[in-house]
Amino acid sequence: MLRLEGIGHRFGGLEVLRRIDTSVAAGELVGLIGPNGAGKTTLFNIISGFVRPATGRVFFEGRDVTGWKPNVLAALGLVRTFQGARVFPNLTVKESLAIARRPVKGRQGDAAARVIATAQQLFDLDAHAGEEAGSLPSGLMRVLGIAMALSTGAHVLLLDEPAAGLSGEEMEHLQEVIRQLHQAGTTIVVVDHNLHFLMGLVTRAIVLDSGMLIADGPPEAVTADPRVVEAYLGAADLADG
């Protein structure tokens, strides 16, 4: 579904990604973890077309899509979300979701629609339908950002720190939505700092440190890997999430 070959990138003289090789199969639910500055968001930017990698190629559904524009990739079904609460501030929740909704290309239209409905219900977005996105509480703003990405009917979703800033209850709702989405056949890659949030959710974890891929496997195995523990500067951070 998604394959990276030798992805490398630098900002100025700083090498932020070095020869990343990995792939994600259709229907997988993968966590991408690593300490701050490990290059997770840069990798997302490269996969979603916002940054052209210095070296290496990105393949999506077997096609080489390196350097393709974000909107083209989104139309093909590869959609990412952004860190923080990125919404259209002066549009209402309803308008925002309408803008994001695309005529679903190909498959899983019904399943996606069901998940969107669930998401709207769980987060009570309907009750806020007429409110401007910029005036929502910050947790809801984040949820709206994810709901917009869902509404595109994407079959590959890249979620960048979706749980940051959410309350415990909201986080559980989000896990529920992601699980349902996964069951509906969507391929999902999640970046998050909160390992508790991720570990209860994903079936596979990829660990980045200083721009290098240092571990890849089931979450339990990965968190036990001494290199991962070291990358996070001791187990305290892991427990702390």
Partner: peptide, 19 residues
């Protein structure tokens, strides 16, 4: 609607598939 989305946030609009 696409134009309004662009006005509000070009990057977000393009991530949602708007050219």
């Amino acid at each position: 609607r696409s134009l309004v989305a662009i006005r509000e946030d070009e990057v977000l609009a393009s991530s949602l598939g708007i050219n």
